[in-house]
């Protein structure tokens, strides 16, 4: 048996701008980052997928709306349905919502402005492969950088989300208290990250990829990227 690094496909749309950062983070966590172009109809043999942040197709129409219908997303859907791990960050989460791989939708931030801010996050699930390196109740600190991160779901959808425990991360205080004062964008139930029922798809608004290298700040992003690499 030969040693190999897991191949993680980093999807590149026109307008992706955290793709290079995501690739470096994957490499730092021991994976082999493979750029996958949006027009590609197959995933080039990767075993895990990362959809990075940015403004795919310039966020025209709605953030993530056009990317959700790109050729590569057909392949990502097939990969996810077969149980393959998928991590979507920021615009990546918006795309996963638009593609129906995660529940709910994104609205513009309550302030209607772009917000870049260090936020605290409370881990709500630790029993899925992509959250396996975290503990429930643990408080993390990561930056958010978005204009449309106000997650919303109609009551019947939200009930299902709660019943199936799909909320992965919530905005909170440094002490882990969830309250409106610590909700930066108005997201319903302070949702900052979501998983699917099977646990192989995770989407999050905060940016773990820029907090993997401890040199750039406390490496609270590492558990997310490292988990993706390990389970792929």
């Amino acid at each position: 048996m030969t040693w190999r690094r897991p191949k993680i496909g980093v999807v590149r749309f026109p307008g992706s701008n955290r793709d290079a950062d995501a690739m470096r983070a994957v490499e730092l966590c021991g994976g082999e980052a493979v750029p996958v172009w949006h027009e590609s109809e197959d995933l080039l043999g990767v075993t895990g997928v990362l959809i990075p942040g940015g403004f795919s197709y310039g966020d025209y129409l709605r953030a993530g709306a056009m990317a959700a219908h790109s050729p590569v997303m057909k392949a990502v859907r097939k990969h996810a349905e077969a149980g393959g791990p998928v991590l979507g960050i920021c615009n990546g989460l918006q795309i996963l919502l638009e593609a129906g791989l995660l529940p709910g939708a994104m609205l513009p931030n309550r302030s209607l402005r772009f917000i870049h801010k260090e936020v605290f996050l409370r881990v709500e699930r630790d029993d899925t492969p992509l959250l396996g390196k975290l503990r429930c109740g643990q408080v993390l600190r990561l930056p958010i950088a978005h204009k449309e991160g106000n997650w919303f779901a109609p009551p019947e959808v939200f009930q299902e989300v709660e019943r199936q425990r799909l909320i992965a991360l919530r905005y909170c205080s440094a002490e882990g208290e969830v309250a409106e004062a610590y909700n930066p964008n108005g997201a319903l139930a302070a949702v900052a990250g979501l998983t699917n029922r099977e646990g192989n798809v995770l989407g999050m608004m905060p940016h773990p990829e820029c907090r993997v290298d401890p040199f750039l700040g406390e490496p609270f992003g590492k558990p997310f990227i490292a988990a993706l690499v390990e389970v792929s």
């Binding site: 290079a20 950062d21 870049h116 950088a145 940016h207 993997v212």
Partner: peptide, 9 residues
């Protein structure tokens, strides 16, 4: 706060 400060990692 309206400017992205971490893109580029």
């Amino acid at each position: 706060q309206q400017y992205d400060q971490t893109v580029g990692a």
